[in-house]
Every structure is written in structure tokens, then in C-alpha cells.
Computed example of a mutant assay.
Amino acid sequence: MQGIRSLLLLLVLLGLWLVQPSSGQSRRFQQFLRQHVDPHSEGGDATYCNQMMHRRRMTETRCKPVNTFIHEDFWNIQSICQTSNIQCKNGQMNCHEGIMKITDCRLTGGSSFPNCRYRTLARTRRVVIACENSEPVHFDG
């Protein structure tokens, strides 16, 4: 049953990836998925961030200094959007929080484009996500 559920989730994510966005919000949602969602990994391996940052195209024109991958299924991530609103770092009130399994990736000192190298830290922690129309669109912290 878990294998079927994982396959269905993969197909949903692939479908969302391939569908042309019809609005700016859809593009933000798709970008959130590409940059932050990796449900099929625990992320603890020391090479994880180097591989994923490259694979998810966050090292093509510069080294993105910090990124977080969430290791939960999409439905758990989206359910955060149903929690009470809290203030985002930019002052807007469309953020929500929850506890998730994540991997934080931080650019190592002395690392520079095009040879981006990252430190990997996998853990469970509180995350803050901005949502629009019940869809996650921005990882706020």
C-alpha cells in the first residue's frame, strides 16, 4: 500500500511539474515544489545537498546560499496552509507553521560558483510556509 501511495504522489508531482502554469500563483506553487519538496528521502547523507541543489537547478547561474528541503508527503505540507495565520518575515499575514522532517542546505565558506558546495543538516523542526489559496508558495523559515 505504501508503494502505491508513493507512486501516486510521484505522479502528482510529475504532473504538476509538466503542466504549464496558468497564473503567477501556479508558477510560485511549482517553484515551491521544485525548490523545497523531496518526500522520498531523509536527506541526512553528506552529499545530499550538493546533489539536490544541482539537480533542482539552484546552482545554474549562482550558488543559492541557503535552501531547505521538506521530507514529508505533499498532503502533510499542504495541510500547514490550513493552520492559523501568522506573520511572515515580510510582514504579511499569510504564513503558517508546522513541524516537519527537513534538510537544511548551507553554502560552505570558500565555495563559489560554479563549484557550489553545501553543508547538510537533516532534522525535524518547526517550519514557516507562506500560502495563497491553500497552496504553499514560499518557504519563510
Rank of each mutant, 00 (worst) to 15 (best):
K101G: 08
R117N: 15
A122N: 02
N94R: 11
C105Q: 11
I102A: 13
D104M: 14
V127Q: 15
G91I: 07
V128F: 03
G91A: 11
C105R: 10
K101V: 11
C116S: 02
M93E: 02
R106I: 10
M93Y: 01
R125G: 07
S111V: 11
S112C: 14
T124A: 03
E132T: 12
R125W: 06
K101S: 15
M93S: 02
L121T: 00
N90K: 03
A122D: 07
D104C: 15
I129Q: 13
T120E: 03
A122E: 03
D104L: 14
R106S: 13
R106F: 10
T124E: 01
R119K: 01
G98D: 10
L107T: 10
C116D: 01
T103A: 05
I102L: 11
R123T: 02
T103D: 04
D104K: 15
Q92S: 14
G109I: 11
R125N: 04
R106Q: 13
L121E: 00
R117V: 13
Q92K: 14
C131I: 04
A122L: 04
L107S: 06
N115M: 06
K101A: 12
F113N: 01
S111G: 09
R126H: 07
I99V: 13
R106N: 11
Y118R: 08
N90R: 01
R125H: 04
V128S: 05
N90V: 01
A122W: 03
T108M: 11
N133F: 07
T108E: 10
T124M: 01
T124F: 01
S112E: 14
G91P: 09
G110S: 06
C116F: 02
K101Y: 07
A122T: 07
T108L: 09
S111E: 09
Y118S: 05
T124W: 00
R117S: 12
G109R: 12
V127S: 14
I99E: 06
P114S: 05
C95T: 09
G110C: 10
P114A: 02
V127N: 12
R117H: 13
R126M: 07
N90M: 03
L121I: 00
G110R: 06
